[in-house]
Amino acid sequence: MHYFTYLTIGAFFGFVMTKSEAVSWYRIQEMFRFESFHMYGIIGTAVIVGAIGVALAKRFNWKAIHGEDLRLNPKNMSVPRYLFGGILFGLGWALTGACPGPMFVLLGQGIWLIGAVILSSILGTFTYGVLRDRLPH
């Protein structure tokens, strides 16, 4: 049952990402060229709805299924890791037109070459793990 829950939420996510067209390389280029509101509308709506929900959860002390607080853990404050890591991520996002979620969704659409993107991204994460102590955080 437990397994089935996450598979189902994931399937819903994959379905949504396809129907929203957020998995499309074309949509990502259009977004970075500021030629349509579509992607900004998707991300903006998700963040506004998300922020209202998170604020309500804090205000009214909502609980998750096993009784723990319904909340997101804050990230530690720093600048270099988020800025430099973010820039590298953005370069890859705009080139492949896919971020980690859409990579897997596109695999389900039969875009086989995206499998190579996934393998390269695992290699990228591995390289980060190796070099981690030498990078500014």
Partner: peptide
């Protein structure tokens, strides 16, 4: 595109501690 693009995504996401779902959606919501 597939080799360099994928590598940048994996390296950058972990260095930044998250990707679009973790930072743009969850992080900004918080």
């Amino acid at each position: 595109t597939v080799v360099v693009g994928g590598f940048l995504i994996g390296f950058g996401a972990r260095w930044a501690g998250g990707c679009t779902s973790g930072h743009a959606i969850s992080g900004l919501s918080n």
